[in-house]
Simulated scan of single mutants.
Amino acid sequence: MAAFTIIILSFLTITTTVTSTTLYQSPKTTFSNYNTMLSTFKIFTYSTTPTTTPQESQFHTSLLTSHFTTQDPNHAHLFFLPFPPSTSTRSLARAIKSIRNTFPFWNRTLGADHFYLSAAGVDSSADRNVVELKKNSIQISCFPTASGMFIPHKDVTLPPVHSFEGVSSVNDTDTDTNTPFYLGYMRLTDESHHPTLIKEIKDHPDFKVELDPTNKKKKFVKSSRFCLFVYGSDMTWMVEALASGCVPVVITNHPIQDLPLMDVINWSEIAVFVGPTGGAEGLKRVLDGIEKSRYERMVESGVAVTQHLVWNAEPKAHDAFHMVVYQLWLRRHTIRYARWVEQ
């Protein structure tokens, strides 16, 4: 809890600086729009059903107990479709067909003002109901989402759930002075992505690869300038890295379009994205080439932005839950009839 408190205080002390930079996609309107959302946004839920992943469960529980929900669908901006875990394509089709036949709201926009949770994303299908769900409705999935399961500008991803247990902010002076200063730290649990590059990084003296996810993690994160991630593998501790002042470096061979809160955060201000083709030496050159002023700004902004990526048992202003809801708010504009007339 102490570490989290420090993060919040850090944000409060640099709010003016951070919001005046390009950390936010729309720094002049983000928080005014957010305040409007708080007072007006309404969501109607068809039913309740259990979810599986920590992110889904946290969001689902927070939504159902929030003031955003309404019992009157005529006052709703969006409609929530809570599907059971591991729902098959056939079951999805039946569920949408039932909603289409029972309620008038789906047919007004063919599902464009509806959203649903799916950790891995919904696959393509020839069934009309699933096609409308996939193409029109807003999908909320976990990050990262497999290729083909995510539609940019329509879908959103959930920030990973992390307890922040044992994490200290960059303001903490408890760093082990005997720890070598590594250029980069990588927690490796999967070597199937870019195995040649991973081997080079493991053999390079300026990078530290930790095979045991729990072994001395705090020490290595705090003593590293950069924390390395391979896109598609385990990225659940990215928020922890940001909170610790370790700049995330994401190794990817294509542009990433499913980063959490992409409508809100300019990720190029807090993370580095590099390709795998240059090997360990090429990666080192890229990181060494980052100017000190830019690096310090990235560290400061990364610590500040963690308040938007943290899940709280009881949601707080500007946290992960509220910012995911804000992304839904930005997608609320759909073409709909001014008044539904029963046939």
Rank of each mutant, 00 (worst) to 15 (best):
E191P: 03
V325T: 04
R108M: 06
K292V: 13
T29I: 08
A338S: 10
L197R: 08
T89M: 02
T61R: 12
F207H: 10
G148E: 08
I14W: 05
E269A: 11
T21A: 04
R297C: 03
T334I: 04
K134A: 01
E314G: 00
F80K: 02
T177P: 11
N171C: 10
K216F: 08
H194G: 00
K292A: 08
C142V: 10
A241C: 13
T53I: 05
D113V: 00
D234V: 05
V239D: 00
R297D: 15
E281W: 01
E300F: 04
S301W: 03
S223A: 13
T13G: 05
P104E: 09
I96G: 00
E314V: 06
A317D: 11
V324D: 00
F68R: 00
N33H: 14
A126P: 06
P260F: 02
A243Y: 00
E314R: 00
P73G: 12
N215H: 11
S26T: 13
P152D: 07
C246K: 01
K218H: 11
T189H: 03
T189C: 05
C227D: 07
N35L: 14
H204A: 09
K316V: 14
T173W: 04
T334Q: 14
P50Q: 13
V122D: 00
T236F: 06
W329N: 03
T51S: 15
T277R: 10
E210Y: 00
T157M: 06
L197S: 11
E240V: 07
H162C: 07
L211P: 01
T214Q: 13
A320D: 01
F220A: 03
Y295V: 10
E291A: 11
L12T: 02
P159C: 10
S86V: 03
V264H: 02
E240D: 12
W106F: 07
T17C: 08
Q55E: 15
P54L: 01
M37K: 12
V264P: 09
A112K: 13
F226N: 01
I8M: 10
F164C: 07
F44C: 09
F59Q: 01
P84T: 09
E342I: 06
A304K: 01
N101Q: 14
T22F: 05
D172L: 06
G184R: 06
P50H: 11
K217S: 11
D113G: 11
S88I: 03
P205R: 05
T16E: 14
L81H: 02
K219P: 00
S98Q: 08
L242Q: 04
T15F: 07
D123V: 04
R339N: 10
T49P: 04
V324R: 01
S168E: 14
H194V: 02
Q327R: 02
I265Y: 00
E269H: 08
K199I: 01
G278Y: 07
F115S: 06
S32V: 13
P160V: 09
P50S: 12
T19G: 01
M298K: 05
T29Y: 08
T189E: 12
V274K: 06
T214H: 12
S47D: 14
L78W: 03
C142T: 13
E132I: 02
N74H: 12
G289L: 09
N101H: 09
R332L: 06
Q343F: 04
S98E: 09
V264S: 09
P180N: 06
A93K: 02
A320L: 07
H153E: 07
